[in-house]
Design a binder for these strands. Structure first.
Length: 913
DNA sequence: ACTCTGACTCAAGACGCT
DNA sequence: TTGAGTCAGAGT
DNA sequence: AGCGTCC
């Protein structure tokens, strides 16, 4: 059976890889993970992949749990059962939780740590508010104690069934005391979450770290306690053991009973081997007991040795003798026949009859009787068995590790493309996926509708929660502490606390859960979603004082097919400064004209086209008057630098030459014209802004002509570009992810209006005017918050402390930001991307500027390939984004971002790596 | 003690070869 | 030029 | 990954 499933996994993988290969021919714009896993840039393709990956993970997890169950069955309760068993069983989900935190990507560390915690929170809450009530609703039976066995299935016999509302109180589930005990243990495991809440109350980074350490120590000691407890209190372990074997035997028996006609000897033999854990070819008394447990022979309480003896007698053996396979098959067959005919007498100890009417009488008096077989099953070790278990675990784990990273990336991208709120992904989607199999098995086992089944299943949930929160929390805290990662888990922690608090209230004191309670607790799940939503959204607002996260990291590839406006002058400047320049030397053509900018622009544009982006380059027009002052200053500085350069050349100081030559770089009209020509030849649209290029970019974005503005200059935000990308060009050379800013979110989280935001930017310093001495990002934000506008600030500010520049033209600057001179008429409509004019391009590059023709041809080809596939329009609108620290340009920018980290903003001390 | 500012420094493109 | 990172000093 | 080359 494992082999069959293993076959599925392998076949699926092969299909996937084949799928990948197919994609490769036509469209490869995405990077296959590990070089062979398929990938896609289309949204629905992603969905498909997600489903497949998820299925694979579910399979893998079932392997791991089967394997670890097998281990447990082999070893039985003991030190292994107490410790390793849990860890192994939890490994796949643990890995899912932590893989994000393990990434080396420091930039994304904050979000990944948050993500790990969200997954943990999500699965805890899901266990408690979805799986838990499932036990109640699926496992409920009449709580009144009459012995009518007919209500075995609530849904079926509608006639004599009580009404739905009556059932709410009259039906339900009972559990034993041990279950409440597990609940209390689970509660204890949640205690550390309280500590994690402290940093948001206390405003100190150092204390935060101490708290982190204390929490870590607490969690570890709790974990040790938990393991120790289980070692010396085999109660809990025995429950799991029973649960495990019960699952196996039960499923077999169900198949057996569901086949009509002749008893299926093969399955009976399978059961026999299943029970015969040590594979010595015979079933002992202890092993038989396992069978009886699996049959749910008694609705609660232990199987008495007495009873086992009697059943043994049925098999013709007694005491320490063994049951042989042939005998086993014979008796089982007999039982089956009898059961079908229901001709058996009551005292003949046919356990199957009890199994069939699972909802047998509940004997409350026996509730307190010991649940545990007096002797734990002592099983002999079979190497083969171990190997099988081991390989199951190893295989499942390997598949999980392999798949989980592609799964999560796909899930994220899908979510962002489909506009799913991002917090739902780690909180709902991922735990949901990994819980599916658990939900199913829970339904199955709860459907037995016996106290024992309910108790076992609930215990299983509690201990599952306790284990996963302890293991995950330990690892999470350790990583965060050791790597000193930023973390802000206030919202998740609160949700866990509230949910588990409510659940504790429900569960700690009682053993009877009426049906209504199950339904009520279902409601907690949506409630927790709302709670988390308001906490994340609300909190950031509340914390807006510091660093709202209004930004989202994006993969470079996720901008496939997106139209992006780029400020050309900025790029040209960069190219001139950096491309092929050594001292005063630059890349030139034969005529001695500089071609650095062409080289850079060509390469970059090719790269963009190859990635499927649609760039629009916007060139600067005439600078506004205000900026002229600034420009004049720059000009004079450049003069100085030129003088310095000459001096340096004469003195031969290389460092100085280097330094000054950088400063003397100037983008000339000629450079601009060259680039425009190049771009037009490449089929890339070029727009000439009447004034500021940044402003024009923003206008294009506002007019929905482009998806976003890409720039390194934060002025774009001030100009109100709805979407703003930073580091778009960087990922190739550096490992910085693209940051996507959403102005509306920025405003929302800063809790400012656009006008206020503009004022803020002016205060922080802009190209148009000076800033006020002594006011940086922080103070500016505070002042704006407090007073609302520059005017009011000026009225209220302490003029002694802050020297306000004379003739401070803030109003003018504001006007430039608010109503920049941009071109809005339909002239812009001709933003069209066309195929490159190869001939013209080659002529221009090779003939006029001395480019290597082979290289040029090759690159043009590359870009053409990709751009032809660009035709596949994506249906999906640009994506909403979330969360980022706000920044402002100038030094102060750091003012607002960096403090964001330090400020211990209520969000909990974030530390920077 | 903690926060904020401002002054300082540094690097800045993109590709391919080894 | 720009931003990023660091550091010292001044301000609470 | 580091370093030279692109023109």
């Amino acid at each position: 059976m494992y082999a069959k499933n293993g076959g599925y996994i392998i076949i699926l993988l092969v299909i996937l890889i084949g799928f990948c290969g197919k994609t490769e021919g036509a469209t490869v714009t995405c990077e296959p993970q590990y070089g062979f896993l398929p990938c896609t840039s289309e949204t629905w393709g992603r969905l498909f992949l997600i489903v497949v990956y998820q299925y694979l993970i579910a399979l893998a997890q079932s392997y791991v749990s089967e394997g670890s169950d097998k281990f447990f069955g082999l070893v039985g309760p003991g030190i292994f059962g107490a410790s390793l068993f849990h860890i192994i069983g939890n490994f796949p989900s643990l890995y899912l939780v932590l893989q994000s935190g393990l990434s080396n990507n420091v930039e994304g560390a904050a979000s990944s740590t948050g993500m790990g915690m969200s997954i943990l929170t999500g699965s805890i809450v899901m266990n408690l508010t979805l799986i838990w009530p499932t036990v109640i609703t699926f496992g409920s039976y009449s709580l009144s104690d009459d012995d009518d066995d007919d209500d075995s299935d609530l849904q079926q016999s509608a006639e004599d069934e009580p009404s739905f509302f009556t059932k709410l109180t009259a039906y339900g589930v009972k559990t034993d005391n041990e279950t409440s005990n597990s609940a209390r243990i689970m509660l204890a495991s949640v205690i550390p979450f309280t500590l994690l809440q402290l940093p948001s109350i206390i405003n100190s980074t150092s204390i935060t770290r101490v708290i982190l350490l204390i929490t870590l120590i607490l969690v570890v000691s709790l974990y040790i306690t938990y393991v120790t407890y289980q070692m010396f209190q085999p109660l809990a372990q025995n429950r799991i053991f029973e649960y495990v074997t019960q699952q196996f035997v039960k499923s077999k028996l169900e198949t057996l009973l569901s086949t009509n006609g002749k008893p299926n000897v093969r399955i009976i033999k399978e059961i026999y081997t299943g029970i015969d854990v040590n594979h010595d070819g015979q079933v002992s008394k202890t092993e038989l007991k396992t069978l009886l447990v699996g049959m749910q022979l008694q609705s609660d309480g232990a199987i008495s040795d007495d009873f086992v003896e009697k059943v043994m007698e049925q098999f013709g053996v007694s005491g320490d003798e063994f049951i042989q396979e042939g005998e086993f098959v014979r008796i089982m067959t007999k039982w089956l026949r009898e059961t079908r005919k229901s001709a058996s007498r009551d005292d003949d100890f046919n356990p199957l009859r009890f199994f069939i009417k699972r909802n047998g009488p509940v004997d409350e008096e026996e509730q307190t009787s010991p649940l545990i077989p007096k002797e734990s099953p002592k099983l002999q070790i079979s190497i083969l068995e171990y190997l099988e278990a081991l390989s199951l675990v190893a295989f499942g784990t390997a598949v999980t590790m392999l798949i989980s990273s592609p799964l999560t990336t796909n899930v994220w991208t899908f979510a962002s493309n489909a506009n799913v709120p991002s917090f739902l992904i780690p909180y709902f989607v991922i735990p949901c996926f990994s819980s599916i199999s658990r939900i199913l098995s829970t339904i199955k086992s709860a459907s037995q509708k016996t106290e024992r089944a309910a108790s076992l299943t609930l215990s299983q949930i509690y201990s599952g929660v306790a284990q996963s929160s302890l293991t995950s929390l330990t690892t999470f805290l350790a990583i965060v502490y050791i790597k000193d990662l930023p973390w802000d888990v206030t919202a998740q922690v609160l949700v866990v606390l509230i949910i588990s608090g409510v659940m504790t209230f429900f569960t700690s004191t009682r053993t009877v859960y009426p049906l209504w309670m199950g339904y009520a607790i279902y409601l907690l799940y949506p409630a927790s979603l709302l709670m988390l939503y308001f906490l994340t959204v609300g909190l950031t607002k509340l914390l807006a004082d510091n660093a709202p996260k209004a930004m989202k990291e994006q993969k470079f590839e996720s901008y496939f097919e997106r139209k992006i406006a780029i400020d050309a002058s900025m790029s040209i400047y960069q190219f001139l400064i950096v491309v092929g320049r050594t001292g005063t030397e630059m890349l030139t053509n034969e005529a001695g004209e500089v071609t650095s900018h062409l080289q850079g622009m060509f390469n970059r544009t090719i790269r963009l086209l190859e990635s499927g982006l649609k760039p629009v380059y916007v060139f600067d027009g005439a600078p506004p008057d205000l900026k002229k002052q600034e420009l004049a200053k720059r000009y004079s500085r450049r003069e100085d630098a030129t003088a310095g350069l000459n001096e340096a050349i004469q003195s031969g100081n290389k460092d100085d030459i280097e330094k000054f030559s950088k400063r003397t770089v100037k983008v000339t009209k000629q450079h601009n014209e060259d680039c425009k020509k190049l771009l037009r030849l490449m089929g890339v649209p070029v727009i000439e802004a009447p004034s500021e290029a940044e402003a024009q970019c923003a206008a294009l974005c506002k007019a929905d002509k482009v998806y976003a503005v890409a720039s390194e200059d934060m002025d774009s935000l001030t100009f109100g570009a709805p979407k703003f990308l930073r580091h778009l060009m960087d990922p190739s050379s550096r490992k910085i992810p693209v940051m996507e800013f959403d102005v509306s979110k920025v405003l929302e989280e800063l809790n400012l209006t656009m006008d206020q935001f503009i004022d803020l930017c002016i205060l922080c310093g802009c190209d148009y005017c000076d800033s006020i001495k002594g006011i940086g990002g922080q103070t500016a934000l505070k002042l704006i918050r407090q007073h609302g506008s520059i005017e009011t600030i000026l009225e209220n500010i302490n003029r002694e402390r802050y020297q306000i520049p004379e003739d401070w033209p803030y109003e003018e600057a504001r006007r430039l930001f608010k109503e920049p001179l941009v071109c809005v008429d339909e002239e812009q409509l001709d933003i069209k991307w066309s195929a490159p004019d190869e001939e013209g391009l080659l002529n221009f590059l090779v003939a006029e500027n001395g480019f290597n023709s082979d290289r040029a041809v090759e690159k043009i080809k590359a870009s053409k390939n990709k751009s032809s596939q660009n035709r596949l329009e994506s249906f999906f609108k640009p994506v909403a984004s979330t969360s980022v620290p706000i920044k402002r340009k100038e030094t102060n920018e750091k003012g607002s971002k960096e403090p964001a980290n330090k400020k211990a903003k209520a969000g909990g001390g974030r530390k920077k790596k």
